[in-house]
């Protein structure tokens, strides 16, 4: 499933952030900080079957993840956006689990780096 992808494509993220490592770490921290409330929003939206909110939050998380080259999180967020667009609650629930798993993987990856 993972193919040639990495949790974070460091080189491309660094290129996008102007080669400034400290700045990139600051942005990753920011992503991790933002992720938790957004995840809660998604959970609530799925419970209420609010597809617009599912689509919008998925889109938001996709954008942030793409900027930081967080490939798996970007893919899972895209799936969430599409689940909202297709009004597919089952897919949204499955993707929520996927997001949680990928986020945990990112956390481990970052703590191993430290």
């Amino acid at each position: 499933m993972t193919g040639g992808k990495k949790t974070i494509d460091f080189d491309s993220a660094l290129e996008r952030t102007g080669g400034d490592k400290d700045f990139l770490y600051e942005l990753i921290d920011m992503y991790m900080e933002d992720f938790i409330p957004k995840y809660d929003e998604l959970k609530k939206a799925i419970k209420e079957e609010n597809f617009t909110a599912i689509q919008e939050t998925g889109h938001y998380l996709k954008g942030s993840a793409a900027n930081l080259s967080l490939s798996f999180l970007k893919d899972a967020s895209l799936q969430m956006e599409l689940a909202g667009e297709d009004k597919d609650i089952k897919k949204a629930q499955q993707t929520l689990d996927e997001l949680k798993k990928e986020f945990a993987r990112l956390k481990t990856f970052i703590s191993n780096m430290d």
């Binding site: 700045f23 954008g63 942030s64």
Partner: peptide
């Protein structure tokens, strides 16, 4: 831009 990560990256580049 509502995504603060994206707006921070943009600002850093464009100011630079």
């Amino acid at each position: 831009e509502d995504d603060r990560i994206s707006s921070k990256i943009l600002k850093k580049h464009i100011t630079g």
